[in-house]
Simulated assay, not measured.
Amino acid sequence: MHTPTPYPIRPRRVSFDWRDTPLHWIPDEPVATHVINVLHLLLPAGERWFVKVFKEALPLVTDPELLGDVKGFMGQEATHSVQHSYVLDHLAEQGLDTHPYTRHVDWMFDVLLGDEPPAGLPLSRREWLRFRLSLIAAIEQFTAVLGDWILRADGLDRADPDAVMLDLLRWHGAEEVEHRAVAFDMYQHAGGSGLPRYLRRVYGMAVTAPVLLWLWAFGAAYLIRHDPQLRGRLGYTLREHNKAVRKGLLPTWGELGAAIPRYLRRSYHPSQEGSLRNAVAYLATSPAARAAAGAVARAAVS
């Protein structure tokens, strides 16, 4: 059953100026910087794929309120994809080329999870669409958890990070909390019914969790290995990662892991994740979101 958002979900046409953002935007914390930077590697292709799959599923939506939320979700995800792509351009300008990694991410979303089942898998087009919707719902479980974490991450504030990067992450995180239930509701609406729908949801999480962990570890290792300022003096290790966790610069393993059993409860709904109040409060104060809202208001009266 769809749980309507208390107000319309709409994209905010934000922009960010990266000219003064250093490569290590958390000072003296290259591991934490690059673990978070993996978002920029995954999200441009991933969120374009979300939009593409949802476009395919739109004709299946018969609930007008859900349809409005889905279209708002698609607008937000498209904006996220564009803004994280600009960060990749900024990293390249600083001597960190991400193309050798992101081309594999592009292949995963465009080919492996494309319009047709890979390797001739005997799945109907309807079942392949339902499976991909289950993957998006599972991914959005983690983005909601990460979004809520970034809004509460006092450790990042104490580390004096680059203000523009922190605003990008918190604007994005706040929108993830804002639309936390849309992908789940879309799957529940278009993913069939009864036990098969639930089992497909479980399978979607069973695929998503280990793949995300693998992509994140290899992404962080790639960024650290190719960081021109480190020149191979540091590697990505669990020990270094956990040091950043203890400083409050990264979410704990417990926070991330606990998201899985919550999601697998038959009675679960993502409206239980995070604080919508905190998300809305940040969006009201975010420099980028405020600037975007001002631009819309000026255009409306001109």
Rank of each mutant, 00 (worst) to 15 (best):
S124R: 07
P122C: 11
P118K: 00
G114F: 02
H104F: 15
P122E: 07
L129W: 13
A138L: 15
A137S: 12
I136G: 05
F131P: 00
F109T: 14
R103T: 12
P122T: 06
M108L: 14
L121G: 11
S134H: 06
G120M: 07
R130E: 12
L133C: 07
R132F: 00
E116N: 08
R126G: 02
L113P: 13
R103A: 01
L123P: 15
E116L: 10
S134C: 08
W128S: 04
R125M: 03
G120D: 10
L135K: 03
R130T: 08
H104W: 14
A138G: 09
D110K: 09
S124Y: 06
G114E: 01
H104Q: 11
W128L: 01
E127R: 15
R125G: 09
R132L: 01
W128H: 03
L129C: 04
R103F: 09
L129D: 03
D115E: 15
H104Y: 14
V105C: 04
L129S: 02
R125T: 10
A138H: 07
L133I: 09
W128T: 07
I136C: 02
L135D: 02
L135V: 14
E116Y: 04
L135H: 01
L121C: 11
L112F: 14
R132E: 01
W107C: 08
A119I: 13
M108G: 12
R103K: 14
